[in-house]
Simulated scan of single mutants.
Amino acid sequence: MIDLGISKLALIGAVALVVIGPEKLPRVARTVGALLGKAQRYVADVKAEVNRSMDLEELRKMKDSVESAARDVETTVSSGANDFEKSWSEATSGLDGAPSSGYDDSLGRLGVDLYPSYKHPRKNWRIKQKAMPQWYKARVGVRTRTQSGAARVARFRPRSTSVFR
């Protein structure tokens, strides 16, 4: 980049003062500063766009590698599942419906559930489980009656006591 020292900037300022004149020099300096600022912002935007595109390309490469790894895992799992199904069918093909290993199928035929369905341990949540006593509500300060906002303000408004009456 251009190497501008203090001496070179002073020389440029003196020449600009002579050529442009002292009346127009501040306006020209502001314009040049604004143009330099715009140029710097433009260069920064271009750099950011290039960095974004490079990051996007890296992310695309990473996405492709992850997708290919996922496809490999999927094919491995599906081939393993097929092998398991074949071996399972071969192992159970000779059983011809006879119960083994202590499992008694007669309970299932009688209508008894071998595996009962899940029932939540709590009672019906719509039914009130317990009541809070009135003395506890009074001690803790739970409101038992509703009041409008205006009634509440009127109730808790400090009483005006006039000393001068």
Rank of each mutant, 00 (worst) to 15 (best):
32 V>T: 13
21 G>N: 02
128 K>T: 15
155 R>E: 08
96 D>C: 04
153 V>T: 04
115 Y>E: 13
80 G>N: 14
68 S>K: 15
131 A>F: 14
52 R>M: 14
92 T>I: 09
165 R>N: 05
32 V>E: 03
12 I>T: 06
24 K>P: 06
28 V>C: 05
80 G>V: 03
115 Y>W: 03
87 S>M: 13
138 A>K: 12
151 A>S: 07
63 K>G: 06
43 V>I: 08
107 L>A: 10
71 R>C: 00
117 S>Y: 00
133 P>K: 15
6 I>D: 14
46 V>C: 11
18 V>Y: 13
33 G>A: 04
21 G>W: 05
41 R>G: 10
15 V>Y: 14
54 M>S: 11
111 G>F: 09
66 V>K: 07
140 V>F: 05
30 R>F: 07
74 E>G: 05
97 G>A: 05
41 R>S: 15
149 G>Q: 01
108 G>T: 05
75 T>G: 13
80 G>D: 09
94 G>F: 04
77 V>Q: 09
126 R>C: 03
161 T>N: 03
141 G>F: 12
79 S>E: 08
142 V>A: 00
112 V>G: 05
52 R>E: 08
94 G>K: 12
102 G>N: 03
18 V>P: 01
95 L>V: 14
145 R>I: 00
113 D>R: 12
49 E>R: 03
96 D>A: 10
139 R>K: 15
83 D>N: 09
147 Q>W: 04
43 V>E: 12
42 Y>F: 10
26 P>S: 10
141 G>E: 02
26 P>V: 08
53 S>Q: 15
108 G>D: 14
16 A>T: 03
118 Y>E: 06
61 K>I: 06
146 T>L: 01
139 R>T: 11
76 T>H: 10
65 S>L: 06
4 L>N: 01
89 S>D: 15
127 I>Y: 01
98 A>P: 02
78 S>R: 15
28 V>P: 09
14 A>V: 07
27 R>V: 06
156 F>L: 03
24 K>S: 15
37 G>D: 11
52 R>I: 09
25 L>G: 04
14 A>W: 10
150 A>D: 04
68 S>P: 00
25 L>V: 10
143 R>M: 02
23 E>A: 14
125 W>N: 01
38 K>P: 05
118 Y>S: 03
19 V>C: 08
7 S>G: 03
5 G>Q: 09
124 N>S: 08
163 V>K: 15
98 A>H: 08
29 A>C: 04
10 A>R: 05
75 T>F: 01
32 V>C: 04
63 K>M: 10
59 L>K: 14
165 R>Q: 07
123 K>P: 12
112 V>H: 10
50 V>W: 04
65 S>P: 00
114 L>H: 01
99 P>D: 10
42 Y>I: 12
86 K>M: 12
105 D>L: 12
57 E>S: 13
160 S>V: 11
109 R>L: 14
84 F>I: 09
50 V>S: 05
30 R>D: 10
143 R>A: 09
69 A>E: 15
103 Y>P: 00
72 D>G: 13
